[in-house]
Write a protein that binds this DNA or RNA. Structure first.
Lengths: 143, 143
DNA sequence: CCAGTTTATATAGCAAGCTATATATTATTG
DNA sequence: CAATAATATATAGCTTGCTATATAAACTGG
């Protein structure tokens, strides 16, 4: 039996995620933000001064990925790494004023992208969709 | 109102797609295949000898992305680029015997990954999930 | 207290995605 | 037919993801 990509959850998930990322990237381009930077800012807008290890835990990316993203964000004036006086290994990641000011425009852009993707979904379909994605994520985490 | 990433379709789509890719990568590792190579092979197993432009159209990635993926696949002995006698610009992409032999083990690995993700989904939920993803993809394409 | 382990971060190296641009070939049009 | 436009592919340069490995600091058990 042939493998049909249009019927493969993994194939569709990849295509959908690329379209989300592309659309978000477009919408936040005027802010000079990239998607992974936005995702990291989401966690820091929620709670400033987190350690890299905590960002890794909350965003579920590999430590090396986060280290590189933070380096680019520091370069772009979005964050500062401040020494932790209690532990010479870790640093606290703090938002710059520029990053704080981006909160509203950036989250609005993300909301607009979600809305574009789900434009013709009913409220019930939206809830179902989010719930199914969360379940697939949980299942793969266990695996 | 706070932006909650756990309630953002785009955020969940990104996380889900990464987990699909990671799981698939793990499963096809013994075959020495990477995920984008697998995706490209899906199209070529279906129809050998396609031009790069047709692969771009069928897989919906940018031309530059496909050119680079094909270069890696050629390096890895999965494809050959053959000159097109009718058009000096284009080349036909042909599978090597090695790539042809990978069809069954690779599609089985992909099926196993999809199954792991959707293990606790009912048949109806699976259909719903695929349909919702297709609709989100179509909506973003239009956008 | 110190040897060994654990934890926090960084770096190297690769794949795959993107945009922008270059080059070659074919098609079109005045 | 020559100039221009369109098409097919390649390349440069960047971000984001990954694994594997290195380094430094802090803990811990004997």
């Amino acid at each position: 039996m042939a493998f049909q990509k249009e019927r493969s959850a993994g194939y569709l998930a990849n295509q959908m995620a690329r379209l989300f990322a592309k659309g978000l990237h477009e919408r936040i381009r005027p802010l000079e933000l990239a998607p992974a930077q936005f995702m990291t800012l989401l966690a820091l807008w929620d709670e400033d001064g987190l350690a890299q290890s905590e960002l890794v835990r909350r965003l579920d990316v590999e430590q090396a990925t986060m280290a590189n993203t933070l380096t680019r964000m520091e370069r772009d004036g979005l964050i500062e790494r401040r020494a932790n006086p209690d532990d010479g290994r870790s640093q606290a990641i703090h938002l710059t004023p520029r990053a704080k000011a981006l909160r509203d425009p950036a989250t609005n852009a993300a909301r607009a992208q979600n809305e574009a993707a789900l434009a013709d979904f009913s409220e019930e379909e939206r809830e179902t969709f989010l719930a199914l994605m969360r379940r697939a994520i949980a299942a793969m985490h266990k695996d």
